[in-house]
Computed example of a mutant assay.
Amino acid sequence: MNKTTESVWDYPRPPRLEPSPRRIRILHAGRTVADSTRALRILETSHPPVYYLPPADLDLSLLTRSNGYGSFCEFKGTAGYWDLAVPGSPAVVQAAWSYSQPTARYAALAGYLAFYASKVDECWVDDELVQPQPGDFYGGWITRDLRGPFKGAPGTRGW
């Protein structure tokens, strides 16, 4: 377990991409959507980390590409979105996103998926249930080893 406290204000801009040895799990409607110790994380000033998971560690049978929606990151490029559908449970539209052709600096993210903690039942880092980053735009995961304040709450988009 990571015992070091990190301040999101020490994270760089442009963001740093690094491997994470921590166990990342995502559960929704009683199903394990992801379980990985091979995640990559993005660290950007004022944001809690965003964890990107390799497709081999996801239950891809539960995920389909969202139709007609994408977004653009000045650093990573154009993102596509993914819907999550667990049989017997309502679908979660745009529960995750990915970069199929990220910029050269973030090439390792190609095909990896990141999930909004606010849109699924449970996201875990090691044995800790995470808190979602405030707001509906950013997808960072807040754990007790992070210090903020965190961008995303009303009035913080212009930071």
Rank of each mutant, 00 (worst) to 15 (best):
D83C: 00
R144H: 13
R16M: 10
D121W: 07
D57W: 09
G111M: 02
D35R: 12
D145L: 02
R25P: 11
Q101P: 02
E128D: 14
A114L: 00
L27G: 03
Y52C: 00
T78Y: 08
L62W: 01
W159D: 00
Y69M: 06
H28S: 11
A110C: 01
N2T: 14
D35A: 12
V33H: 05
G139A: 14
F150P: 05
S7A: 12
S100A: 13
L146H: 07
V130Y: 10
T156F: 10
I26S: 01
G80V: 12
A29F: 09
P14C: 09
I26P: 01
A34Q: 03
P12E: 09
C73I: 02
K119C: 04
L58V: 03
F75Y: 15
L27P: 00
Y106E: 05
I24L: 14
Y138K: 13
V8N: 06
F150M: 05
C73R: 09
D136L: 08
K76H: 11
I26E: 04
S89P: 04
P54S: 02
A108E: 15
D35F: 12
D59L: 00
G139H: 13
D126C: 02
V50N: 05
L63N: 10
S89C: 04
G152Q: 08
P12A: 05
V86H: 01
R38A: 15
L58P: 02
N67R: 13
P54Y: 07
G30S: 12
R31Q: 15
F137H: 15
P14D: 02
R144P: 15
F75Q: 04
Y51V: 02
P87A: 14
L27E: 15
A104D: 11
P154L: 10
E122V: 10
P15D: 04
D83Q: 02
G158T: 13
D57V: 01
S36M: 13
G140P: 08
T78R: 14
Y138F: 14
P15V: 02
R65N: 00
A96S: 08
F115E: 13
A56Q: 08
G158H: 10
V92L: 05
A114I: 00
R13C: 06
I24H: 05
M1I: 01
A91P: 15
L84W: 13
Y11V: 00
D136P: 03
G139S: 15
T4D: 11
G30M: 07
G88A: 11
P55Q: 11
Y52D: 00
P48F: 09
G70M: 08
R38N: 06
R157P: 01
E74G: 14
R22S: 09
A110R: 10
S71W: 06
D127E: 14
P102Y: 11
A95V: 02
K76R: 09
S118R: 15
G139F: 13
R105M: 07
Y116V: 00
V93S: 14
I42Y: 07
P134A: 14
S66K: 04
T156V: 06
